[in-house]
Structure formats: C-alpha cells, structure tokens
C-alpha cells in the first residue's frame, strides 16, 4: 500500500482535527505543516504532537524561513491540505498557495471557502490541466457530504431548487430565542460563551457565511456563474423575540434559510417563516440542505456543519477520493 505525503497548511481547529484523523490512518503521512507565520518539514513524517506542542508554547509551529507559501512551492508532498481561515474578499493567501500547488502537479483538498467561492472555475480548470484533484467537500455544511451527494448521489437529476440551513451560529441563536425566549443579544452572548460564535460574528449573522456557501454550491454543483454580490442577503440581528412567538402561534419557526433557484438565477439568504414540520428546522448548530430534484423529489441532508474532526471527516473523504482516482 502506498503512503501519500500530505502538506498540512493551517493548524487551527480544523488543522488539528485533520492531524488527529490522519494520525490513525496508515495511508497518509504529514510531511510538512505550516501556520500563519512559520512551517516545518520532515520527509520521514512529522511528529504532529510535537509540532502542535511547539506551536502552543511559542506561537509558531516551526521555522519562519519556511512559511506556507514556500512549503507549497518547494517542499515534496503529494497532496496539499489547505485549512486556513476564510478570507471572503481576496481568498488570499490561500488562493495563491493552492494555485502554486496545482501548477506543480499536486492534488489539493481545502475547507477554505474564500478561494473556492472566488475562483472555483479557474482552480478546477487548472486542476484538470495538471491532471490533479481539487476537492473541497468541507467548505459547505462541514461533515455533511452535500457536494458529493449532489454530484454523484443525485447524478443525472436536474436540481430545481435548493434550500439550506448553512450557518450553525445563526441556527443556534434562533433555536435558543425560540426555545428559551432569549433576546438576540442574549442568545448571541451564549453562543460566544460556548464557542459557537466567533469574537466578531458579523459574517455569520449578516448572512455572508451562508451566502458564500450558496455561491460554492451554485458554481461548482449547479453549473452557475455567480459571485457573492449576486446573493441577496438579510441577517438575523434585527429579529425580535415577538417575531418568533408570533411564528410559533401558527406552528412555524424562523430560520436563516439560503435559497437557490437555478433556472431563475435567484440566490438569497434571509430569515424565513418555515413550518416546524419541515425537515430543515433542525436544532442547535446543525446544518441541513434540501435539494428539490427532477426524479428523486426532495432530498434532505442533515448533519454537523462545523467543528474540528467533523470538518476533518469531509477532508478525509476528499483525500480518499483522490487516492482512489489517481496513481500518485
């Protein structure tokens, strides 16, 4: 059995999850790793625990002479796993790093929404030209295999509409407002305390994060050509407890729903009244996507949309897809 060499770019929550998942898997060996300031290489395989311990102690995982960009360009590896935080405006520095790797004939797996939402067609074309895989299952709905589900599981079905709960932070806040009568501000504070919301949750609560995921779905799975600016966005910060109570009177919830109608070229993220019996009404931080198809009818995917090992699960699936399909 061949062992595939992995360069791991990003050692945050998802990066640590990937390290954890790959540690118990003999098919992969992490030969290089980088954080935002430094990098470390060992062709024989890194002791990732030591690397993480060093990062924790010093703030750096390795040598500043080997930043991520240099590892991508010069180190020896088979697959680059890129799991740094999303930059929605430029996709950088991840976008350049991914391009460098693909142009060198290296496979790339990423959970970073920035490069995929901004440049998926260019990156996929580049990957095809270089005969490598470029996969990004973890960018949409975390552990939920929505991209592969649509592309392969529902192959041949025309997608008529797609509805999704794609932001766990918003779903958590709305669930708590509904169940406990918390105000938006109280529910957000609770989400922060529990680590479900970032220190600056703007992109989550104003619908941008869900909109980026919608763009990825539209461009990579539904043959559309759209950008973030094409998605009409309304966030949840103005919602009142009274609104949730009124919704409840008629058996409804209010959830931040991403909607996509490919034929009308309509993309929107907004709080919507939705019947509590609808499978999209999921609790807490869960994500859910319903796809309305030509032959299969409506299919709903539900699962964990974020988290360290959860996202790593999507990355592992991408890695195994590559090892299955390619020889090197």
């Amino acid at each position: 059995m061949k062992t595939w060499n992995v360069a791991l770019i990003g050692l945050g929550s998802v990066g640590r999850g990937v390290a954890e998942v790959l540690a118990g898997d003999g098919r992969f060996r992490i030969v290089a790793a980088a954080d935002s300031k430094s990098g470390v290489i060992d062709p024989a395989g890194l002791n990732i625990e030591e690397v993480l311990a060093k990062k924790k102690k010093t703030g750096r995982c390795g040598d500043t002479a080997w930043p991520a960009a240099r590892i991508a360009a010069e180190a020896e590896y088979d697959i680059l796993v890129e799991v740094t935080p999303t930059n929605a405006d430029t996709g950088e520095p991840a976008l350049s790093i991914i391009k460098t790797a693909i142009k060198r004939g290296k496979h790339v797996v990423t959970s970073n929404k920035g490069p995929v939402s901004l440049a998926s067609s260019e990156l996929l074309r580049l990957a095809e030209e270089n005969n490598v895989g470029f996969l990004f299952e973890g960018t949409v709905a975390g552990a939920v295999p929505i991209l592969r589900g649509i592309k392969y599981g529902l192959a041949g079905n025309k997608i008529k509409a797609l509805y999704g709960v794609l932001n766990g932070t918003c779903n958590y806040i709305l669930t708590r407002m509904e169940e406990e009568g918390l105000t938006y501000v109280q529910a957000l504070a609770e989400a922060r305390d529990l680590g479900y919301a970032e220190a600056d949750p703007t992109y989550d609560i104003n619908g941008t994060d869900a909109a980026i995921k919608l763009v990825i779905l539209a461009n990579t799975m539904l043959g559309m050509d759209v950008t973030l600016a094409d998605v009409k966005r309304t966030g949840i910060s103005d919602l009142t407890v009274d609104a949730l109570l009124m919704a409840e009177e008629t058996g409804h919830s209010i959830r931040l729903i991403a909607t996509l109608y490919p034929e009308k070229n309509l993309l929107e993220v907004s709080p919507r009244l939705i019947s509590k019996t609808n499978p999209l009404v999921v609790a807490g931080t869960l994500n859910a996507v319903t796809v309305e198809t030509e032959y299969a009818g409506a299919i709903t995917f539900i699962g964990r949309g974020a988290g360290s090992v959860e996202t790593a699960s999507a990355i592992l699936a991408d890695l195994l897809f590559i090892t299955d399909k390619y020889d090197r």
Partner: peptide, 11 residues
C-alpha cells in the same frame, strides 16, 4: 422594515 416571508409549502 424587515420582512420575513414564508418558505414554500411545496417542500
């Protein structure tokens, strides 16, 4: 005004 509309019953 923020307007919250219903998502279709056709789901």
């Amino acid at each position: 005004l923020l307007i919250i509309n219903q998502i279709g019953g056709g789901l």
